[in-house]
């Protein structure tokens, strides 16, 4: 069985670009009728064969991930690097089961906690206290777990007296602190973290970083997406570099970073 925490084999994810477009039932029906009329006419027209292949949405798809294979051992902290649109978030979403892969598979040995964006599940009308319970439960903590960690979370967030105020009255920095405080107290042995260190408050950022370091030192497994090279360097020894959905480098963090920085950041599809 070894001590593998995560293994992915030829993971791939295909998106159809029109998929995201929010349609309307009426428009879709109209479109369907129009298209089928059109198809009828083209099918009846003499050069029907020539037109046959031109499906309206053909080619409008993108492999957000393709042939992604790697292994992560228990206790490893691995950075995921890549420019915007490289597929980092999609990878973490697949590993946390938010979305399914189109091909390939992955094995996860252990429970997964995911911080795909801080503040998940927060509701502006509810108080800080209520939101700690809500967000904690949504992120996978049991009520008992939250209860035992409650004071720690409040202290970490530094929100003090505002605990029983609706969070719509919090500043965005304060909401961020509370959200991070909840997320960082997740128990699971595997943590997936997506760009949560985009915090403006410098002293709080230091605190978060040292908390993350502590998590790594505890021997938990962490996959860490960040655009902050300094924090990546302090947290991870290894990084995986993604480019347009493919792994282009997997190894030493310093090499990965220099390779990442030498790539043209404006390179888009």
């Amino acid at each position: 069985m070894g001590n593998i925490a995560i293994r992915t084999v030829n993971l791939g994810k295909l998106f159809y670009l029109n998929q995201k477009k929010r349609g309307k039932l009426r428009e879709t029906l109209e479109e369907k009728i129009r298209l089928s009329l059109k198809h009828l006419f083209t099918a009846l027209s003499p050069d029907a064969k020539k037109n046959e292949k031109k499906h309206p949405f053909a080619n409008k798809h993108i492999w957000a991930l393709k042939n992604v294979s790697f292994e992560v051992k228990h206790g490893e902290a691995v950075g995921i690097l890549g420019h915007n649109g490289a597929g980092k978030s999609v990878l973490l979403k697949i590993l946390s089961q938010v979305t399914k892969p189109t091909e390939g598979y992955a094995e996860i040995h252990g429970r997964v906690g995911a911080m795909l964006e801080v503040g998940t599940g927060f509701h502006p009308e509810l108080t800080g206290r209520e939101n700690i319970y809500l967000s904690g439960a949504i992120l996978g903590m049991t009520r008992r777990e939250i209860k035992t960690k409650f004071d720690e979370i409040v202290e970490f967030s530094e929100i003090g007296d505002l605990l029983d105020m609706p969070i719509k009255y919090y500043s965005s920095g304060m909401q961020g602190r509370l959200a991070f405080a909840v997320a960082v107290h997740l128990e699971p042995e595997i943590l997936l973290i997506d760009e949560v260190l985009a915090i403006e408050d410098i002293s709080f950022k230091e605190k978060c970083l040292s908390k993350l370091k502590e998590i790594v030192r505890e021997g938990r497994t962490v996959l860490f997406v960040s655009h902050n090279m300094d924090s990546l360097k302090t947290l991870c020894n290894r990084a995986i570099l993604l480019e347009r959905g493919k792994i282009v480098f997997d190894g030493d963090i310093k090499k990965a970073i220099s390779k990442y920085l030498s790539g043209n950041p404006d390179a888009k599809l």
């Binding site: 001590n3 228990h74 697949i94 590993l95 089961q97 399914k100 892969p101 189109t102 091909e103 390939g104 598979y105 992955a106 094995e107 996860i108 040995h109 252990g110 429970r111 997964v112 439960a137 949504i138 049991t142 009520r143 042995e189």
Partner: peptide
């Protein structure tokens, strides 16, 4: 803990999924 970890398999969706009502029960807190 590591030796007794649950294994999760992640794979593409295949056809009609079972209802998994048992899983709903496990998530009743939520």
């Amino acid at each position: 803990r590591i030796r007794n970890l649950p294994l999760t398999l992640i794979h593409p969706p295949k056809g009609l999924a079972p209802l998994e009502l048992g899983k709903l029960w496990r998530y009743r807190d939520l």
